[in-house]
Design a protein around this nucleic acid. Structure first.
Lengths: 126, 126
DNA sequence: TTACGTATGTTAGTTTTCCTAACATATGAT
DNA sequence: ATCATATGTTAGGAAAACTAACATACGTAA
């Protein structure tokens, strides 16, 4: 009766993941290029995604919509996987880190202003 | 975080279902022909299976291995969906029903004998 | 302003997966 | 010996997915 599905099993094809996440194939491949997900491959080289991959993609989408860029997202995931390390301790110099975080702050503020404005408008347009 | 997967969502491609069930595409299509499953179709006519479909296929596989044939499996599913109706009350005459059930009994007995024999041998061969 | 980087769109050409339909076959029942 | 059932196999075609390259919108930096 129970076909024991694990969240790490690579069950899902590209098209289904596109539907579940509302991301384009281009976006999903781009995030893989940046090593944010590592989908399995079939013998014929087709990507196969797990439910965990879908969750990760939804997190990525969310952060992007909040103005975080690839570098920031990478950092967040790095910290999730090893919360003990200081942010950016690994491959990024202090200077680079400061620059990235400065950029994040600005962009995030900007995006938030935008979404607040949109929220305001929606009251009238809905 | 939780991408809310329902057992009825058509998420799975043919190749994955083949792996999950260890059935061939031919077998899966044959069972669909007999209306034991009704997978969704993409715009491009590809079958997409739900987790429930996988469960059903595993049940079918199990019953086949126990010597039940298509007609018997159909009846079992019909009764599961509506336990109040008497077996075979719908599209099959009493005569046909008796014939089917007789056949089931014989075949099931035969298969069981076989598996018992195998069980016996396994004690020695393992 | 111009130049640049980032995230994504678009297109072309190819390979893989899946489809239907038809024919083949093993096995058990009649 | 014939027949039905469940499955294998094959051919030809269509859909889905791949990589790689080029295009572009937008925000930032010089």
């Amino acid at each position: 009766m129970n076909s024991e599905i694990r969240r790490t099993m690579p069950l899902l094809s590209m098209s289904i993941v596109m539907q579940l996440t509302e991301l384009t194939a281009r976006q999903i491949r781009y995030y893989e290029e940046h090593d944010l997900i590592q989908p399995h491959r079939t013998e014929g080289n087709r990507r196969m995604f797990s439910l965990n991959d879908v969750d990760t993609l939804l997190e990525i989408k969310d952060m992007l919509e909040q103005g975080v860029n690839m570098a920031g997202i990478k950092k967040v995931f790095a910290m999730k996987n090893d919360p003990t390390i200081q942010a950016g301790a690994k491959e990024i110099t202090d200077g680079e880190l400061r620059k990235i975080l400065r950029e994040e702050m600005r962009q995030a503020q900007r995006m938030q202003r935008t979404s607040i404005r949109q929220g305001d408008l929606s009251r009238f347009y809905q």
